[in-house]
Design a protein around this nucleic acid. Structure first.
Lengths: 325, 325
DNA sequence: AAAATTTATTGAAACGTTTCACTATATTTA
DNA sequence: TAAATATAGTGAAACGTTTCAATAAATTTT
């Protein structure tokens, strides 16, 4: 492994000179700089990032920590984060947060291997986030309402989004609206249920607890739960799913039971994932600005790193009317 | 920032003792270990990963370098890589390779911030890969045929896959088969074209150069190119697209021009992305084992790290027959 | 021509760990 | 009881950089 010391020796200068030369410090004369550069070239020298990071006490790297690296849902958020990180000439690493306290996410946060973090990973607890956040490690969360000097949030208006979706169903004349729920502890799920409830209340509907279906945000579970329900009963004429994945599973189940969508049963989802516009029938859903979540969140990280003030924000949603309702 | 020194001072022991204690070295007595542990707790000590990495000369981190972090195509590969990395109790970071020599991927490779790399990023040149690969940084490539002591590849049998797809079209009686191509310099594209050509040859078809459509692997471009073609001409009865994204764009174009799929024009894609089975009509395509690409590649990395022998491999593909052909 | 300033280079400390080689004490063996 | 061994803890070097403070040489100012 060739180090700066080797380069310096070969160039016949001090290590410090070599360092300055390679970093284009103006104190170094043109001639010595060239000597160092050629030496470095000939030896095929590569600076050691770890050593630099240790000395400089920063990594110029932002971490994006996700529960599931591969979720289709995240694509646009990743793009947004990537954009702002590169604009600031920082690096981005995306890490998994599954696996609790020995997840990569947790380690990277604890061990200061990033200078800032965008978190969309319910598995990381509030407590852990409070522990790691500080000036040199600002955190922006996308999956909960958490705030302190170094912690900000970027959320979407879940309540309003589902309120609109459900109101839309009511306006179209649907009477018995089911709720296909995500995991109970999920912040997004809770908020979406809240919007659902409020819309019912405001229209003097009362909610039949039997129409609350418990899913887990996966297509598979949406399919299973609704299949099972339709075997015995068909007391719903509309279904609001807490996310698109489950809505897509539900649609599958409904079609397999030979009900018409939206005539017999209407379906509305939440998220507007790519798939939603391609399925049959195309899914009515609540769109939210995923790319912007990424850009805003990352922008906030850099604001905090620079000591500037920032405010947490809640982004608006938009109902996308398609043929499933 | 509380360091090991602070912990040692508080516990009244030497720094080395504190280090041994925290790392559960058996040389340390139960009592001192506890003293150190309580001190660490009280001070809320977090070890500095960068310092440890520097000293240990390794990061226990594997990098997965992708052209586009957000591509839907990558999901399963990521899952596969993640699996094997966690099984080996290493960490995974996924980084973008867009941006050439100042991409994060390039920097991480150069600066030894990972101990091994899985690369699926045509933007990183062969030369760069040759430069960085070595015992302490084995590389497995998924997008080209590159090999040395520390570089292995995991590829899919592109030629055979498209050969089968095209043979399938011929067997069904299609006569005028177009090829919707990806970027010309893409390894995958070249191989897929090769399989296409061979299938035509072996069946004594000769290829009309006018039926070679130049796309870039995106849905949008597939749509545009085929739309334009269908405006003037309809001399094809089948289309083989070098990937599913373009096939999906083509299907859209064909439907908009009021041709029936597969009666007027059949379409076959390559990759079997999730969307392909949901669109209308469901897309016939060539499936390849993405998850396994990830697991095999990562497994090979660890083999090399442990000084064991490994062989590059080519994985088989499978024709998935759906209603678009 | 001496003093002051600028320019180019350097040695050494520091970043926060790990780990080798050593010492002091306690325990066992002959 | 002396010698040998085991146990528990320590000091210091090392990992590869960056950067401060110091110095030497060259240039400018008085």
């Amino acid at each position: 492994m060739v180090t700066l010391k080797d380069v310096a020796k070969k160039a016949g200068v001090a290590v410090s000179t070599a360092s300055y030369a390679l970093n284009n410090n103006p104190k170094i004369s043109e001639t010595t700089r060239n000597m160092v550069l050629t030496a470095a070239n000939e030896l095929d020298y590569r600076p050691n990032g770890t050593a630099r990071n240790l000395k400089k006490q920063k990594t110029e790297t932002i971490g994006l920590f996700l529960n599931d690296l591969a979720g289709p849902y995240y694509s646009e958020i990743i793009r947004g984060v990537q954009k702002v990180v590169s604009d600031n000439e920082y690096d981005l690493v995306v890490c998994s947060a599954s696996g609790g306290t020995d997840s990569t996410a947790y380690k990277f946060l604890q061990e200061r291997r990033v200078d800032g973090a965008v978190i969309l990973a319910p598995k990381i607890t509030d407590k852990e986030i409070y522990q790691v956040a500080r000036t040199q490690l600002p955190v922006v969360v996308l999956d909960r309402k958490l705030e302190s000097d170094y912690i900000k949030y970027v959320l979407i208006d879940n309540v309003n989004g589902s309120y609109q979706a459900v109101t839309h169903l009511i306006n179209r004349g649907y009477k018995n609206i089911g709720f296909l729920s995500g995991p109970e502890e999920s912040y997004d799920n809770k908020e979406r249920y809240e919007g659902f409830s409020r819309a019912l209340n405001d229209n003097n509907f009362l909610f039949d607890e039997n129409l609350l279906f418990k899913g887990d945000f996966t297509e598979e579970e949406g399919y299973k739960v609704i299949s099972k329900f339709l075997k015995n009963d068909i007391s719903i004429d509309a279904l609001f799913a807490a996310n698109d994945e489950m809505a897509i599973g539900a649609i599958q189940a409904i079609k397999e039971n030979n009900y018409q969508i939206p005539n017999d049963i209407a379906v509305v989802g939440f998220d507007d994932i790519r798939l939603s516009s391609y399925i049959n029938p195309p899914l009515t859903t609540v769109r939210h600005p995923k790319y912007e979540m990424g850009t805003f969140a990352t922008h906030m990280i850099f604001q905090i790193l620079q000591g500037a003030a920032t405010e947490s924000i809640v982004l608006p949603t938009q109902l996308i009317n398609r043929e499933s309702s």
